[in-house]
Structure formats: C-alpha cells, structure tokens
C-alpha cells in the first residue's frame, strides 16, 4: 500500500458502507421524489393528450392560470423592492431593533400558512377590524383578488430579503464609499455598484419567491372563497378538480405546477452556483484583511 492509500483508509469508510449509504439515499429519492413526480405526468396523460389539453384550456382552468400569474406578477416585484430595502437597512446601518426586524422578516417562514390567511380575514373580512369600513366604501378584499395577492405577498416576503442579507453583510460598504468619492450620486451608486454586486443573490431570491408565490396553497385557500373562474388559483383549482374525482384534469393542471417547479430548480441551481462564487469572493477578500 502506498502512503496515500493508507491515508485514504484512515479518513474514509470501507467501500461496502459507502455503497450501502449511496444506495439507501437513491432508493429514498426514487420512492419519495422520483415516483410521485413521474406519477403526476403519467396520471395527467392517462386519458390522452386531448383530455390533457382540454383540462388546461377550459375557461375555468385558464382563469386560474391567469390569476396565479397575476398574483405572482404583483407579489414578486413588491417583495423584490421590500427585500432590497430591508437587506440594505440591515446590512449597511446600525439601528435599534435590528434583531427584531430580522426576526419579523422570518415570521412567514415559521407561521402556518393557514394562520397567515386567517390574519387577513381577521383584518379585512366582513367581521374583521376594517370590515365595516371597507363595506361602506364598497371595497372587497377577502374572497377576492386583493386578498389573494395580500396573502401571497405575506407568505413570500422573506425570500428576497433572506437571500440578500448575508450577501450584503459580507460585501460591506467600501465599494459604495469608493463610488461616492469617485463622484457618484447615491442613486448612481445604487445602480452601478450595489445592483451589480447583488444581482445573482437577487435573482436567486426572486426565483424562490416566484415559485412560492405560484405554488402557495394554505394562505390563499383561506382568503380565496373558491369562486370558480374568479378567485381560484392553480393550486386551488387542482384541489377542486381532485375533490370532484376528475383525476386526469387535476393532474394535468398539477403537471403545469410541477413543470414550474422543475424550471425553478434548474434556474435555481444555475444561479446558486454563481451566488456561492460571489459569497466566496466576498468572504475571501474579507479574510485577507483579517490576516493583517
């Protein structure tokens, strides 16, 4: 045995243990991820392509798809702005209550989506705090599109902020200060220095935020009212179809959500790689400083 082989032996498990662990992991993956994923598409196409397309293109399904896209189109930009603002404040400034803010940002992650939905019913619903006032002014939020958007915004607001905070803390403020002394205004510094610096992290956060916005079920279910063609999102539409034993149609719509998930995953891993490179670069230059 060469010294290298001996060293290897000392730090790795015997071959049969390695193979068993790998096989176990793969079997789990196949059983709990691969199989259901395949099942979605098999069931969706069980009655042929014609039924598949009919299920997707019927007006009610189409309305649900449009509502889902609309919700994401409002929620994602809102949370993009909020996320950048929150991360900026947390990474670049010292202020009282910073820890409280960080904890609050995580709230939607720790609270059950059903509770998130109920919060809005309690505030904006007919029996809620603002209910009577809203009714007097002919504004409906609960069991209508605004409620769905609000609930989605709430559920998805940590994604962008959470992604940016560690990145912006690692990067520090020196590059921005350099830009300011070079004659850049605050606005120019933001667009020419901050944005290029965080763009990959930002994109990553937006992808995750979008996936959740389109896939949210619990919170949206509480505030939606399930009015077909009006307040049903894709996830709610899938549930209704399934409850009506229209399995093939339910899976057809579900397959669209699954495709979205797959696209998200692919985009996520591509961006994730870039973010890791960037964080490493930022931390690396930081470490070099600490050594001196």
């Amino acid at each position: 045995m060469t010294p290298q082989q001996i060293a290897e032996r000392a730090t790795t498990e015997p071959r049969w243990i390695r193979w068993t662990l790998i096989a176990l992991a793969l079997a789990f993956l196949a059983l709990f991820v691969g199989l259901p994923l395949a099942a979605v598409f098999v069931s969706a196409l069980s009655k042929g392509w014609a039924v598949y397309f009919a299920a997707i293109t019927e007006p009610v399904a189409w309305a649900a798809i449009k509502l889902t896209l609309l919700t994401a189109a409002i929620a994602v930009p809102l949370n993009l702005v909020f996320g950048v603002a929150a991360a900026w404040a947390i990474a670049k400034f010292e202020f009282r209550g910073k820890q409280v803010l960080i904890t609050l940002i995580d709230l939607p992650f720790s609270v059950s989506p059903v509770v998130s939905g109920l919060i809005y019913v309690l505030i904006f619903g007919l029996q809620g705090w603002l209910g009577p006032w809203l009714q007097d002014h002919d504004i409906t939020i609960i069991f209508a599109v605004p409620g769905i958007v609000l609930a989605t915004v709430f559920v998805t607001f940590p994604f962008v902020a959470r992604e940016l905070i560690p990145l912006m803390i690692a990067q520090g403020t020196e590059e921005e200060e350099a830009a300011l002394t070079l004659g850049a205004s605050g606005w120019q510094t933001f667009w020419r220095v901050t944005v290029p610096n965080i763009k990959w992290g930002l994109l990553y956060g937006v992808i995750l935020c979008n996936a959740r916005a389109m896939g949210e079920f619990g919170a949206v279910s509480v505030v939606s009212g399930h009015i077909r063609g009006l307040t049903n999102t894709m996830t709610l539409h899938v549930e209704i179809l399934y409850n009506e034993y229209q399995t093939a149609a339910a899976f057809a719509v579900a397959s669209l959500l699954t495709l979205l998930a797959l696209v998200t995953l692919a985009a996520k891993s591509a961006v994730e790689w870039r973010v890791r490179q960037q964080l490493k670069a930022a931390r690396h230059s930081h470490d070099e400083d600490l050594l001196t």
């Binding site: 020196e174 350099a178 220095v193």
Partner: peptide, 11 residues
Amino acid sequence: RMVMFQESALF
C-alpha cells in the same frame, strides 16, 4: 478628495 482603502474596494 479621493480615498484609497486598505481593501482595494475595486468593482
């Protein structure tokens, strides 16, 4: 008044 930092702070 231009500043040069310990960390080069390049883009």
